[in-house]
Computed example of a mutant assay.
Amino acid sequence: MSWKPGDRRESRTAMVRVDQAGEYGATRIYAGQLAVMGDRTTAARTINGMANQEEHHRAFFDAMIAKRGVRPTLLQPFWDVAGFGLGVVTAAMGPQAAMACTAAIETEIDLHYQQQLEQLGDEDPELRDAVARFRDEEIEHRDTAIASGAENVPAYPLLSGMIRAGCRFAIAVSKRI
Rank of each mutant, 00 (worst) to 15 (best):
L159C: 02
R40N: 09
T73Y: 04
R28G: 00
C167R: 04
G22R: 14
S160I: 02
D143L: 10
R8P: 06
I163S: 13
R176T: 11
Q33I: 04
F169E: 11
R58D: 14
A82P: 00
F61M: 15
G69F: 09
T41D: 12
F169W: 14
H56G: 08
F84C: 02
L127H: 04
T41K: 11
T107V: 01
D62I: 05
G38A: 10
R12V: 09
K4D: 11
V36W: 12
K175C: 07
V70A: 13
P5E: 13
Y24P: 08
R135N: 02
A66R: 15
I109K: 03
A35Q: 11
A44P: 08
P72A: 10
R142V: 00
R8F: 04
Y24K: 14
R133E: 12
D62H: 08
H56L: 11
A51N: 01
I163H: 13
R8V: 00
A150K: 12
Q53V: 03
W79G: 01
T144G: 02
R142N: 08
A44Y: 12
V131E: 10
G94K: 14
G121H: 00
Q20L: 11
T41Y: 13
A132I: 02
K4S: 08
V89Q: 03
L86S: 10
M99H: 15
G38K: 08
R9C: 01
H141E: 09
L111T: 01
R168V: 03
R28Q: 15
R58C: 08
L127A: 04
E10A: 01
L117I: 09
I29K: 05
L74F: 08
K67G: 06
A165S: 14
M162Q: 13
G32M: 05
E118D: 11
E140V: 00
Q53K: 05
G69R: 13
N52L: 10
A14S: 09
D136L: 12
E108H: 11
I146W: 05
D122N: 00
K67A: 14
D19W: 04
T46L: 13
H112C: 00
V153R: 13
A35N: 05
V153W: 00
S160M: 10
Q33P: 10
G94W: 06
G22Q: 15
Q115M: 03
H141T: 03
E54M: 10
V36G: 12
S11Y: 07
L75N: 10
E54D: 07
V81P: 05
L74M: 13
A82D: 06
E123F: 00
I139F: 03
P5G: 04
P157L: 05
E106L: 06
D136T: 10
Q33G: 09
A104G: 13
D122A: 06
M1F: 02
A100I: 08
A103E: 02
A147S: 14
A147Q: 13
I139N: 01
A91I: 04
D143P: 03
S11I: 04
A91T: 05
M93L: 15
T144A: 03
E23V: 03
E10M: 12
A170S: 14
I29T: 11
N48Y: 06
